[in-house]
Design a protein around this nucleic acid. Sequence first.
DNA 1: CTCATTTCTTACTTTTTTGTAAGTACCTAA
DNA 2: TTAGGTACTTACAAAAAAGTAAGAAATGAG
Lengths: 122, 122
Amino acid sequence: MRKESSTNNINEKRLRELCGTSYALSIIGGRWKPTIICRLMDGKVRYSDLRDSIIGVSERMLVQQLRELEKDGILIRIVHPQVPPKVEYELTEDGLCMQPMLSKMSEWGNNHKAKYQKEELV
Amino acid sequence: MRKESSTNNINEKRLRELCGTSYALSIIGGRWKPTIICRLMDGKVRYSDLRDSIIGVSERMLVQQLRELEKDGILIRIVHPQVPPKVEYELTEDGLCMQPMLSKMSEWGNNHKAKYQKEELV
DNA sequence: CTCATTTCTTACTTTTTTGTAAGTACCTAA
DNA sequence: TTAGGTACTTACAAAAAAGTAAGAAATGAG
């Protein structure tokens, strides 16, 4: 839960407002979010498949991150009314069009990582 | 200080290793980092100018974020040996070449923000 | 009636990040 | 000798994010 009146919260909100980058970060910044979005890039995926393919994530975290992404309009939740339950997650258009951004991030990240690891050897 | 043995730390490290996007996020993810990097995009800037132009940041936070960016090879610290002290910060090549990534993030962010705020009116 | 399956909840703890407030070091100039 | 300017430190507190462990609902199969 966020405390509305905290300096922390106020600062974050202001940065989000005046800087597109900070805004983007506030949406994809959660620990498991890039991974989740990646997994969904090729189409909808079932909850249990997400859970099983993302090693290290707990159900608590997975559900939380999914809910936040849903609230931010990045993905939708598709409930099939059956028992046992079946729920699928699918990127929205706004989620899909993160692709160029994510790929730039990945590109920069991988370059920097490679370079840094090389420098360590020197 | 990070606790080496925590699940939190271990998860972050693993994601960083295997995903360029998570790696990039771990570097630009700090509250004031995108703003700092932005300010430096046009050339070196003095500490006090950074402090005065970034509203809301405390000296504690500013120094901390600068140190982390320095450690990650994004910027360098240029000390002029004089009194009163004069310190400038300048992006490295790795910092400068964040530009395309940052601009994609900013672009996506601004689009999404505009769209979302429009939808709220409906 | 009991069990299995799937998708979550809930209450709680730990870890990490962010912020506050006050103080420090250095020399220079009045 | 005292004040002033710059770039920080330090000790502490508050807030936020991440993780743990156990449980819950719904229903069809046996």
